[in-house]
Amino acid sequence: MSAVSTGELLMKLWRGDASGGDFVEYRLPAQEGEVVLDVVHRIQATEAPDLAVRWNCKAGKCGSCSAEINGQPRLMCMTRMSTLPIDEPITISPMRTFPVIRDLVTDVSYNYEVAKLIPSFTPGPRPAEGYRMFQVDVERGQEFRKCIECFLCQNVCHVIRDHEENKAHYAGPRFLARLAELEMHPLDTLDRRAYIAERMGLGYCNITKCCTEVCPEGIHITDNAIIPLKERVVDQRYDPVAWLGRKIRGRPRPMTPADVEPYTGAAAKAARAGQAEAS
């Protein structure tokens, strides 16, 4: 391990691209009151002007500066240097679940592909007296609206981090939270449970809660989104008592192919291709 003298920072930043890379050491004086992103900016302003780093708000609200600091997935702008052991080298590497573009910048488009596949909010016919909303009905979903889409939860989730092939079958915690928000919406009429189980890969989650641990917004992704979704799927598939209750009382209709078509069908693919060309 390289020696770090008092008042000095030894930062090890991963530099490279898809063809390969390694950690590069930067030494610079420690300053009070800095967050990790400040230090990275100082390196960029002095020793490494070609360093690629994605950032925007510096306030933990845009979700751009996700990285792995000493191996822990975190936002660089929300990690104070004073919370790190600065008498040792500090490593900063890109999110290791997504393909690298350059240095600390990764290609997170997998997440946008999943987002396109989520059947959107589908209210029933508008009542004559209009909608009347109660806070207790919407506040569960509001927790998930805090998401800043930093994709740290997607990054830490071992289902796709350690098993690349599962990206084709698994939506990941951020989008399971989005689906939970829709399923819990008081005015939504679509029953997405079969879709969540089969297409969104809910069963891949083994609830080890890393998504919850790394969420910078403190969203209880596992307890309040994923497990409630698992229980809803149990209602539909594994609980005959609940099945009987649905038969007697009537419940929202299950999704039909027509509901899914706008998101997965040929027309949607053509529209996406057209958008890509236009851009």
């Binding site: 950690f23 890109p94 290791r96 240095d103 990206k167 079958h169 999704m255 192919p257 899914v260």
Partner: peptide, 27 residues
């Protein structure tokens, strides 16, 4: 069991698998 009524096996999420990742090896 099909994804939704009347459809066959779920299509995979359209993402390219196996592209190079950044950082040191996961091990």
């Amino acid at each position: 069991m099909s994804v939704v009524e009347g459809t066959a096996r779920p299509a995979p999420i359209p993402v390219e698998i196996g592209r190079a990742r950044g950082g040191p090896p996961r091990s």
